[in-house]
Design a protein around this nucleic acid. Structure first.
Lengths: 138, 138
DNA sequence: CCTTGACTTGGAGCTGACTCTATGCATAGA
DNA sequence: TCTATGCATAGAGTCAGCTCCAAGTCAAGG
């Protein structure tokens, strides 16, 4: 089982450019080539890329994903290392979601203000002042 | 009421460099200066910056925040424009949260695999194969 | 008057993550 | 054999979003 770079690109929704870039950056551990020097992507590579995309989508920089990929070769402690890394990232994602949720609340407050202001404006009443952005906490 | 750039930096938790950069990029609408040419930040500027930060934190590129800032001057339709923009962004944030949630699920599946694998490894049993990344959907 | 410190400017430099160009090789089909 | 396709490489370019530097101005204090 082996995919060309174009096939791998389709499977991962990454461009061939990006896949070569990831290879250069050391994010593809298996680094197989066929007899004429072309990259060969295995199912394991695809799976690994999907994990990388998942980590990337949740805000992990590629350098850090590389550590994750790297410790695939680290032998004994590898399973525990990867698990620990993933657990830490899991928490980071939870934090990020919470942060988004809080920013969403600020946006909602702003929106409530604009609703009020639009209504006032429409009725010819004076538009109220704002003061409903992110809270101060100094 | 007016703040120096250093004070504004503290209030917004942005660096003075960043504030000047934002000014250059047209993100500070009021553009006041004191008699010796130094920037003066009003409470309204601070509030506007806080909104920009909120938008930025939730993934809006600065260019788009600039549109938001710009239509502060657009006169009549401004209130409705800003509200519409904010509503659209609100939805984008909701989508982003949902995306993170789904990626989190993939991470959790991965973690479940590593728990299983670690346990197997610890007990000297064969480590199971993986196959639990992001789902395929082509 | 001189120094200090906070500000100004234009423009260069940096990081991350691609994205593309130029050039060349290898295999397949007409 | 010729041509097209698909890959390879090194290295340059792009974009966002800062971040910093050099050189200069200005006001206050000793």
């Amino acid at each position: 089982m082996g995919y060309t770079i174009a096939q791998a690109a389709k499977l991962t929704r990454l461009s061939p450019y990006t896949l070569r870039y990831y290879d250069r950056e050391g994010l593809l551990p298996s680094r197989l080539r066929d007899k004429s020097g072309n990259r060969v992507f295995t199912d394991a590579d695809i799976e690994n890329l999907r994990v990388i995309c998942c980590l990337k989508n949740t805000g992990m920089p590629l350098k850090q994903s590389k550590e994750f990929t790297d410790c695939q070769h680290a032998g004994d402690g590898m399973l525990r290392d990867r698990r620990a890394m993933l657990r830490r990232h899991r928490q980071a994602v939870l934090n990020r979601i919470e942060e988004l949720r809080q920013n969403l609340e600020a946006i909602d407050r702003k929106l409530a203000y604009y609703d009020q202001a639009c209504a006032a404006y429409g009725a010819g009443r004076p538009v109220p002042p704002c003061g409903c952005g992110a809270q101060e906490r100094d």
